[in-house]
Amino acid sequence: MADITIPKNLAVSDSGFLFLTSTGETFTLNEIGHFIFKQFQQNDSFETVKNKIAQEYEVDLNSLEKDLDDFIAQLKAYNLIETK
């Protein structure tokens, strides 16, 4: 069950370019940021996303959790996600 939802008015291109259609704001995501964003778009939960990254990338779970929290805080600050 998704604990993070992404608003509908968002377009992300393959290059990691993000366009918020309601406000006209644009952003760039790095590779991992883009990867995470795609998972959230597929309604994956925080835990699932974390595990997927841990499988694909060379990273320990503690650092990953810290980074994810920080990333999500930023996305929230930019109104790019809603958390339950």
């Binding site: 993000l18 644009t26 952003f27 995501l29 991992i32 940021g33 990338y57 060379e58 990333f71």
Partner: peptide
Amino acid sequence: TKKRYERPIIIKHI
């Protein structure tokens, strides 16, 4: 082999 990890980053265009 796993991919090299980099912290997730989002940059707002100003």
